[in-house]
Amino acid sequence: MGSYLALLKGGYKEALQYRFDFVVGLLRVPLTLIIFYFLWKAVFAFNGTDVINGYTFETMIGYYVLSMIVGMFTWMDVDNWLRWDVKSGEVVSEFMRPLNFVFQYLFRQWGMSTLSIFISLVPTFLIGYLFVGLMFFGWLNFVFFTISVVLAMFIVFLITMFIGLLAFWLTDISGLIKVKNMFIAFLSGSLVPLSFFPGIIQKVFAFLPFQYMRYVPVNIYLGIYSVNETLFHLGVMVLWVVVLYIFVHYQSKLALKKMSGVGI
């Protein structure tokens, strides 16, 4: 465990190097919120209704605030690291350590995320409560929400890891990383609650892991699901984590084989 803690610390120190970028990144949150705030204000004003698609203006803005908070916890950069580590050959040292290859990246990522969460979490919640009127929907929802965020973090991590590991087989994965980010932007619900998509598409989404990255955790917080529905979603999330982990675990074994075979 000590070695993993060292990785955690290492990741945190790495993040400190980029604290200026984090602080500027922090500005993104209010900027994006301002834009969505005015956009939905205009939509609600013109339509003259209080509720659109199950969301009031307040819950809609709350949706974006929470979506950004979930986004902070599920921010992952491991695909970029793997890209560089494989290109530079440094990945060898990760394989040589007597630690689980996948977990090493997880702990390094956690170390890095800690700082950005420190910096951004409180201001975002404050913006949510003071300016947007984000409400608290009870402790049960909050506990479920917390669990779902942790699971969402694992799902994003594993998918990012999957893309990153492809670097062992492809010459450059920078394009794939961008495509993955776009898929998450479209399909996770960070753009708009997924209930705005046509019914058939929503049915397809149910079979994909993306909606569990933002949409489902946020809706759990907002109390949109019944307890049974919430438990069902959490169960599906656990299933995704298990399936993806098994997949990525074997993928990393294949990567090791590929590396020792070619001798990168």
């Binding site: 010459t171 394009g175 794939l176 961008k178 980010n181 776009m182």
Partner: peptide
């Protein structure tokens, strides 16, 4: 890196459709 170029292009186009 021909393949990567087309993937990047695809990502850019997707981004513009957001």
């Amino acid at each position: 890196y021909k393949w990567n170029f087309w993937v990047k292009t695809f990502a850019v186009a997707l981004g513009d459709l957001i």
